[in-house]
């Protein structure tokens, strides 16, 4: 807490002032280690990956001797080693990661558009129209967040089977077009923060609800739309259980299932290739996160706020 006044801060001993940064650095190292080690392993040849050791970079040998990091040839060697691993992954007979990447993108795009459209419409109905039952519906919406998703795994499969959706992408994106509890919650909270005078003035001028929604509310709600889109993209990209149970054919796999099957099919795990494939799977969300870190964190922080 920022409760410590300047005087008490200066009274602390030097080791107390250093303790906090040291703890924070340690925390960062622990949290980043699996990703950093994933990257390091992905650029090594398989034999070196399995050796263990703490070297973050591969050893490049030339004429019986190891090259130093200061030699240009060393970095050419590293690039060649990394290139070989990633090429092996992309051309693997066990998996078609280019197809998985494309499938994941298609599913994510369809579900993001659907989620943003449906959640904003539903949130308008929950925040801008006074009707009996909207309070109850909002409570039900919150309550559905409490249902563990895996409880629905078997029954949803049965439903999708009845609908003839097994082996298609429909289970992965159609439900998003009907809204989601978290997106509706977030959007409603945001809409409630938009002054009512704006749309009441528009109503007196004869604007219909759809007009108010499109030309007043939506333009003001852009930050909320972006947060919902971000969360839906990562949720869709990271979804594993649903694709695992509804997709049957290898060429249909999304990245998560494809990665899982790639590992399952190998007798012994080629860790450098598995880590390279994992890097490919996390790269899109990683880039997205680095670009939009603030929106992510603030979106999550509102989740804890209950009115």
């Amino acid at each position: 807490m920022s409760s410590l006044s300047a005087s008490s801060r200066s009274r602390r001993a030097w080791w107390q002032r250093l303790a906090l940064p040291a703890v924070l650095i340690l925390i960062s190292l622990v949290f980043i280690a699996p990703i950093a080690w994933m990257g390091a392993t992905s650029i090594k040849p398989e034999s070196q990956a399995l050796e263990g050791g703490l070297r973050p970079l591969p050893r490049i040998e030339r004429d019986g001797g190891g090259l130093g990091v200061t030699q240009p040839d060393y970095w050419r060697g590293v690039a060649a080693s990394a290139g070989a691993t990633y090429r092996d992954v992309l051309t693997s007979p066990f998996a078609d990661f280019v197809a998985y990447l494309r499938n994941s993108l298609i599913v994510a795009a369809l579900s993001v558009v659907g989620m943003v459209v449906s959640c904003s419409v539903v949130a308008y109905g929950l925040s801008r129209i006074r009707w009996q039952g909207r309070g109850v519906l909002f409570l039900i919406t919150l309550a559905t967040m409490m249902i563990p998703a895996t409880v629905l795994m078997a029954p949803q499969f049965i439903l999708f089977k009845h609908l003839g959706w097994i082996g298609t992408y429909r289970p992965l994106w159609v439900p998003a077009w009907l809204g989601g509890a978290f997106g509706i919650f977030l959007m409603r909270q945001f809409f409630l923060g938009i002054p009512r005078e704006l749309d009441e003035a528009a109503r007196l001028d004869g604007c219909s609800h759809p007009r108010i929604f499109v030309s007043i509310i939506l333009p003001l709600a852009r930050p909320a739309l972006a947060v919902v889109a971000l969360f839906q993209f990562t949720a869709s990209w990271n979804d594993f259980v649903l694709p695992l149970i509804v997709l049957n054919h290898e060429h249909e796999y999304t990245l998560g299932v494809g990665l899982y099957m790639f590992v399952s099919k190998h007798g012994s795990t080629p860790w450098n290739q598995v880590m390279a494939a994992s890097v490919l799977a996390i790269l899109p969300v990683l880039v997205l996160f680095l670009l939009t870190q603030r929106a992510f964190v603030e979106g999550i922080a509102t989740r804890g706020l209950k009115d």
Binding site: I27, I32, W37, N238, L259, Y260, S278, A281, I282
Partner: peptide, 20 residues
């Protein structure tokens, strides 16, 4: 950095830790 792992796909996270 602490928030980053929450956006990592669960399959990649599990594999990274299996390797750790």
């Amino acid at each position: 950095v602490v928030f980053l792992p929450t956006v990592v796909p669960v399959v990649a996270a599990s594999l990274a830790w299996a390797w750790m």
